[in-house]
Amino acid sequence: MDQSMVRLQEVAGTNKKSKIALDLNVGASTVTNWAKRGVSKEGALAAAEKYNADANYILSGSSPNTTVSDLKAKIKTMQSSTIQSTTNPNDPEGTLRVPVDYRMDGYVPVISWVAAGSFSDVMPVTIDDVIDWIPRPQHLSKRAFGLIIQGRSMWPEFKPDEIIYVEPEIAPWDLKDGDLVVIHCNDDKQATFKQLIMGNGPEDMYLKPLNPDWPDQKIVPMGECMLVGIVDSKVTRYR
């Protein structure tokens, strides 16, 4: 039997080819062929998603990469023993809230824009708000986090699906004209990312998209607004 099939059976937790075929929604003959000639790349990717495994491990036997679920499990273990959680009476029963500093040295969480809107020291985001984990540049604080760009208001400097690093440890009076900021206003359901234009004073301050073709070139925040953080840099991925 091909070794990639052996590893597939290992991550699937079964030696039954019929069960694997059912799990991966492929024909029994396909699994039989994998056993003889090796698991295909498409099969490994499907198995990785189904069994929360690593496709490279199935294909080549290389050491499995840490998955998001693995990291969440590790966080929960550390939280139960070393970190005191906070609670929100509006959370569903069983919700676990921990500070964004998850004591995962070297990584920062990528969270949703809705979660970023509720980001604070008093009420940190939940573990379930974490979408992914990315390496943390050494100059950023351990409370830094990532956000995935949505829309084209900051095009072409920031494209959809790119990830930006946000540094929350900055005071409003330390901001400068032209800084890229993430803010949240009470009237909005989620945070927003724009360029800050200081003007001649507080009354002249407004937000501006980088996209010159964006319809609203001068955005004056309504209601009470909170500075979530300053955008430090972005993650560049080519595939």
Rank of each mutant, 00 (worst) to 15 (best):
S120N: 10
D121Q: 08
D121G: 12
P124G: 05
V125Y: 08
T126P: 12
D128Y: 13
D129K: 10
D129P: 14
D129V: 09
V130A: 13
V130K: 12
I131C: 08
I131W: 08
I131Q: 15
D132R: 08
I134L: 09
I134T: 08
P135Q: 13
R136N: 11
R136D: 08
P137D: 13
P137M: 10
Q138N: 14
H139S: 12
L140I: 02
S141I: 09
S141E: 13
S141N: 10
K142P: 06
K142V: 07
K142D: 15
F145L: 06
F145Q: 00
I149V: 04
Q150P: 04
Q150Y: 03
P156T: 11
E157S: 10
F158L: 14
K159Y: 08
K159C: 10
P160R: 04
D161S: 11
E162T: 02
I163G: 04
I164M: 00
Y165H: 07
V166T: 02
V166G: 05
E167L: 01
P168E: 06
P168H: 03
P168N: 00
E169S: 01
I170Q: 04
A171M: 11
A171F: 09
P172S: 06
K176Y: 14
D177F: 07
D177A: 07
D177Q: 09
G178L: 07
L180R: 07
L180C: 13
L180M: 14
V181D: 11
V181R: 08
V181Y: 07
V181E: 12
V182N: 04
I183Q: 04
I183S: 04
C185G: 10
N186L: 06
D187G: 01
K189P: 02
K189Y: 08
Q190R: 11
Q190D: 14
A191Y: 06
A191P: 13
T192A: 01
F193M: 01
K194T: 02
Q195R: 00
Q195M: 01
L196N: 03
I197A: 07
I197W: 02
M198I: 01
G199T: 02
G199Q: 07
N200I: 06
P202F: 12
E203Y: 12
D204A: 15
D204R: 13
M205H: 02
M205F: 00
Y206V: 09
K208A: 13
L210E: 10
N211D: 15
N211V: 12
D213M: 14
D213V: 09
D213G: 13
W214G: 05
D216R: 06
Q217Y: 10
Q217F: 01
K218T: 10
K218F: 09
I219M: 06
V220S: 04
V220Q: 04
P221A: 04
M222W: 11
M222R: 15
G223F: 05
G223M: 02
